[in-house]
Design a binder for these strands. Structure first.
Lengths: 210, 210
DNA sequence: CCAAAAGTGTTGGCTGTACACCCATGT
DNA sequence: ACATGGGTGTACAGCCAACACTTTTGG
């Protein structure tokens, strides 16, 4: 009856020294040509939503096996009846290879210092941030933001960046260890560091709900 | 590029003496003609997703101001590339007027005794049920399942039907009252009842998150 | 008088939070 | 030697779960 354009959008989060960041690209077409926006695009023929989101994520970051989850479906972003299915992804900055083959390069922006965005992409990012914060408390999503091996301090800094508040070190360690989602690797990190630190890894590198 | 059919589906829940129920209709078109399925249909031109879901809900139940929330968007329900945006709704059985003008009448089914369903509608219902159970704990969604005035026992039976387990009466009352989402009306229910019971109402008849 | 549902408090365990010091290493 | 970050325990408060009896009414 009324076929519609169906697009996917991907909110790609990472955590770096500068805190929680989102990946944005410059739009190459009207409307909002040259404005910053979330990566996204129309579905290819025969492609599922999940596949389209994975493809977009891969295009932008070169990553495939990361946390990627459907967020929400918007229908009034442009006023021409298009439907946009938003996903959110969490990536380890040190593992990503940003797309280079473009007029404008994609760029990371701190979550609290975003440029003006196309459409209502601010709403989409807000929504993603709320979900991320909620999930942090009852899942192991952070596995996707860190390298295979990491220290408890790194994990804590990651949580702090996402929640944008500081956490008590002893309580944090107690809580995380009691969840039994990570285990010590036996190795220690000592590169350019004051005191060597125990390295841990996630028992499962896929989403687990407590 | 690749326009798709976009449909909405609505999982309509209610609670009655028989427990938690879902409203199903008979499909009138192929594929799965005459199979039980969730109410739904394509978007009208110019219509948003929310509007389409509200329209479908109104068609089936005559209700408009009830809890209705987007659930998830499915893309492989039929294999022809259609996209289905699922919503879930909570209705007070005593306020609904089921659609009558049809070859096959819509019908309530207990959640644990569903007939074979078209497409993957079982998955959609499961998903809705999980969300409903989760929301019950940190929101006031039950407002939409009960009449304006109700007793604490009715509210408890509603919770029990959704969670399908029994709850301790004293703990339930303590917890609900301490949330301060309901207030006594001053009136009592006494119609055909053993001992008269205090009537309460929700302070807000719209979604509130604790 | 009996059946049915309404109403009402206390206790123990668990969980989350607040809080401060010592240690190993690099510079 | 000092600066930096790693690592560790305890005490209190709030929350949730378990648990049983009395009251009011209708039949």
């Amino acid at each position: 009856m009324t076929p519609r354009q169906v697009a996917v959008l991907v909110v790609i989060f990472t955590v770096s020294a500068g805190g929680l960041q989102v990946l944005l690209i410059r739009r190459s077409a009207e409307p909002f040509k040259d404005a910053w926006s979330l990566p996204g695009g129309l579905l290819n023929p025969g492609e599922s939503l999940q596949e389209a989101a994975e493809r977009k994520l891969d295009d932008e970051t070169g990553l495939t096996e990361v946390f990627l989850e459907q967020l929400y479906t918007f229908s009034d972003l442009d006023k021409r009846g298009a439907v946009a299915v938003a996903y959110f992804a969490l990536v380890d900055l040190s593992a990503t290879h940003l797309a280079r083959r473009r007029e404008w390069l994609p760029k990371w922006f701190p979550i609290d210092d975003l440029p003006p965005l196309a459409f209502d992409n601010d709403d989409v990012i807000d929504y993603g941030l709320r979900r991320l914060r909620a999930k942090l408390d009852y899942s192991n999503v952070a596995y996707s933001l860190l390298p295979e091996e990491f220290t408890l301090s790194q994990l804590q800094r990651t949580h702090e960046a996402i929640l944008s508040r500081s956490l008590d070190k002893r309580n944090f360690r107690k809580r995380i260890l009691s969840l039994e989602i990570i285990e010590p690797t036996g190795r220690v990190a000592s590169e350019g560091r004051h005191r060597p630190a125990q390295l841990y890894r996630f028992r499962a590198r896929k989403p687990v709900v407590f």
